[in-house]
Structure formats: structure tokens, C-alpha cells
Computed example of a mutant assay.
Amino acid sequence: MATVREIMTRNPECAQTDHTLQAAAEQMERLGVGGLPICGPENRLKGMITDRDIVVRGLARGRRLDTPVGELNQGEAVTVGADDSTDELLSTMTHHQVKRLPVIDGDRLVGIVTIADAARALPNPESGDLLDALSME
């Protein structure tokens, strides 16, 4: 059975808590990603921000593009451990209905794993179950 460490993207870039929504959007565009971990001092994980967060929780609610990313943070991020099994990953993603998870090793951010990473690593029936669970509203 594979571990999260084997399928994650290593050393993801963070949006710092004091970066603006504009800077985070530009960073996402440059990296070709839809979400970034939010990191504070000493690169400690503070949460996640997605392109949808910027639009729906930011701009649609009257926030300006110069708003600090940290102001949209919704508290502690759902994470998965680097040495957790892909079964644990699947369970966490479906339970919390998230498409990307920061990967931690101890208290350090070491990677990020997306639904696409999980789908590629899991057998077809399991990846179908994951997609079905995340598509539920």
C-alpha cells in the first residue's frame, strides 16, 4: 500500500499570511494550481486558500485585492501525514470533502496532495469512489 509521501508534490510554495489576494492569485496562475497553503512565520502552516476562496469569500463579499490572505483563513487546515496510507488520505478527503490537502511531517509542511494525485495512485474503483464522494453537495 502506498503512502502519501510517495504521491505528494514535494515542497509546495506557500502564500504568506501577509500576502495580498492579488499576489496569491498571481502565484496560483504562475504555478498552474488552484490552491496554496497559507504559511505564517517560520513557514508554519496556517490554512489553505483556493482560487474559489479569493472569488467567493473575498471579492464577492466586497474584499479588495489588497486584502491580506490571512484575513480569509478559516482556521486550522485539514491535513494528512506524510506517512499515512492512501486509504487514510481517501478517508480524509471524502470526510472533509476537500480536493487538496497539505501534507505534514511532524509540524512541518512537506508537500501537498490533490485529488488528481490520489486518483492516479488509487485503483480505478477507489478513485471513482473518491470522485463520487467529493462531488456530493
Rank of each mutant, 00 (worst) to 15 (best):
A2E: 09
V4E: 00
V4K: 09
R5L: 12
R5M: 13
R5H: 14
R5K: 12
M8G: 03
T9N: 12
R10N: 01
N11Y: 11
P12N: 11
A15V: 14
Q16F: 10
D18C: 01
Q22I: 12
Q22P: 00
A25H: 05
Q27V: 03
M28W: 07
R30Y: 14
V33G: 12
G34T: 13
G34K: 14
G35T: 01
L36H: 06
L36Q: 06
I38T: 06
C39W: 00
K46N: 02
K46C: 03
G47P: 03
T50D: 12
V55S: 08
V56Y: 11
A60L: 13
R61Y: 08
R61F: 03
G62H: 06
R63I: 06
R64E: 12
R64G: 13
P68T: 11
V69S: 02
V69T: 07
E71Y: 00
L72E: 03
N73D: 12
G75Y: 06
E76S: 13
E76V: 04
A77M: 10
A77R: 10
V78E: 10
V78M: 10
V78A: 08
T79Q: 05
T79P: 04
T79D: 01
V80M: 08
V80D: 02
G81E: 07
A82D: 11
S85C: 09
T86L: 12
L90D: 04
T92N: 06
M93C: 05
T94A: 15
T94G: 12
H95G: 12
H95W: 05
H96E: 10
Q97G: 14
Q97S: 14
V98Y: 07
V98C: 13
R100Q: 10
R100Y: 02
P102I: 01
P102R: 03
V103R: 00
I104V: 15
G106N: 08
G106E: 11
R108P: 01
L109F: 03
L109I: 03
L109C: 04
V110G: 04
G111Y: 02
V113C: 04
T114W: 04
A116Y: 01
A116S: 15
D117H: 02
A119R: 14
R120V: 05
R120Y: 13
A121K: 03
N124Y: 09
P125Y: 10
E126T: 06
G128C: 10
D129T: 01
L131D: 03
D132F: 10
A133H: 09
